[in-house]
Write a protein that binds this DNA or RNA. Structure first.
Length: 282
DNA sequence: CGGTTTTGACCGGCGC
DNA sequence: GCGCCGGTCAAAACCG
């Protein structure tokens, strides 16, 4: 499974549906293959601190980001396809999202919905809202297990068959109340050994799961990275800042915890890729 | 018994 | 307008 230049393209792995979500293919490739001696935590594999290639050090430059964007995004010519606006926080997703939120008001149930209720007692739930598009962050992991341990507790709330794939997609929600982070887990149908995990939203809490203290005293004593650096992990990682670097809303607040012990089976090769909020299907 | 998973149905967005 | 599809809900089953 040697790939050209050791880089897996997302489309290769997941197929079209994935490229829909993740127009930026193959952002980077960590050669953790044979990395048996790499005590990399799961989140670390996501590009935390140590592994952060300078490329993703968004604090410094936008230019390389643009380069990466253009290089990796085949849709970049399609202007509407990638509305990358690095320097316009006002036009970022948060404003869009919040404005959507403004629009949706608590829906009063009227007679139409009584019928629906009669059918099945469905609340006028928030699906009436325009679904807020949370920033997403996705990565691929070579793993035998679908649901990768990431330090948070998740509750599965759905599973769907994926078109053009023989593998279902599972939907998880963070079990912490008031934290509405979601994640989707699916297995690449072109490469079943690859698990695609997509995080959506931002954790409002540190990880509830104390890692196994495999790193000596680190586990118990080391503060969560979340607490030290409440910035979203993605902002650190993403070369594009997802176009919403205004700090109000962020892609999943993926904490980096140096003491996090990676599952053994986890990740020989992990890739991260990103979806901008504005990115329609290309 | 409480939390989680399963699973069929529903809903909304989007393309045709 | 219609159908497809992704995402979500919620009741039931399951599990520790």
């Amino acid at each position: 499974m040697e790939r050209k230049e050791g880089v897996l393209k997302m489309e290769e792995v997941l197929g079209n549906s994935f490229s829909d979500y993740f127009p930026l293919q193959s952002i980077f490739d960590w050669s953790c293959e044979g990395g048996e001696n790499t005590p990399l935590g799961f989140m670390e594999l996501l590009g935390v601190q140590d592994l952060n290639p300078p490329l993703f050090d968004t604090g410094q430059q936008q230019a390389p980001s643009a380069v990466v964007n253009q290089a990796l995004n085949p849709c970049s010519t399609k202007n509407e396809g990638f509305n990358y606006q690095p320097a316009t926080p006002n036009s970022s997703s948060i404003s869009s999202a919040s404005s959507e939120a403004v629009n949706d008001e608590p829906i009063q149930v009227d007679d139409d919905q009584d019928q629906q209720k009669a059918k099945k007692q469905l609340k006028p739930k928030k699906t009436n809202q325009k679904r807020q598009k949370e920033p997403r962050f996705a990565f691929m992991t070579k793993s035998e297990v679908d649901h990768l341990e990431d330090g948070y507790r998740w509750r599965k709330y759905g599973q769907k068959a994926v078109k053009n794939s023989c593998f279902p997609r599972s939907y998880y929600r963070c079990t912490t109340t008031s934290c509405n982070v979601k994640k989707r887990v699916e297995r690449s149908f072109t490469d079943p050994s690859m698990v695609i995990t997509t995080y959506e939203g931002q954790h409002t809490h540190p990880s509830p799961i104390m890692p196994r203290s495999s790193l000596g005293g680190g586990a118990g004593s080391a503060p969560y990275h979340y607490q030290q650096h409440p910035q979203p992990f993605v902002n650190t990682l993403s070369p594009l800042n997802f176009g919403h670097n205004n700090g109000s809303i962020n892609a999943g607040n993926f904490t980096t915890r140096g003491d996090f012990a990676a599952p053994d089976r986890l990740c020989l090769k992990t890739m991260a890729c990103f979806k901008t909020l504005y990115h329609p299907i290309c």
